[in-house]
């Protein structure tokens, strides 16, 4: 069973604020799912066994150029911005 501090730590890493009641609920829920994962622990995988021989598609890269999405797309994006100032997106300072 996860401890209260462990749940609080995971929640902080996940950037999710939790109330004390939620911490208790997730302590129980997460622990039961983590127990379920232990089935995998019994599986021993030999070196090279996990190679399925199926080629992995390599990444496609495009030229790093500016493409004009058009006025309507730009307006569409600005319309869903919660806080704007002088045509810019306004967010909280990250410093």
């Amino acid at each position: 069973m996860l401890t209260v501090d462990e749940v609080k730590h995971i929640a902080l890493l996940a950037r999710i604020g939790l109330s004390d009641t939620e911490v208790e609920t997730y302590r129980k829920d997460l622990s039961s799912v983590l127990d379920f994962f232990h089935e995998l622990g019994d599986l021993v995988i030999a070196e090279g066994d996990a190679d399925d021989g199926i080629p992995i598609k390599t990444n496609d890269y495009r030229e790093d150029t500016v493409e004009d999405a058009g006025t309507s797309c730009r307006e569409g994006i600005m319309n869903i911005v919660p806080v704007k100032k002088d045509g810019f997106v306004k967010v909280r300072s990250v410093f």
């Binding site: 995971i10 890493l13 996940a14 999710i16 939790l18 997730y26 829920d29 997460l30 799912v33």
Partner: peptide, 13 residues
């Protein structure tokens, strides 16, 4: 959603 995000965060930590 919170549950799954936290599970994933745990599995990747």
């Amino acid at each position: 959603v919170k549950r799954r995000i936290m599970l994933g965060t745990y599995a990747l930590s």
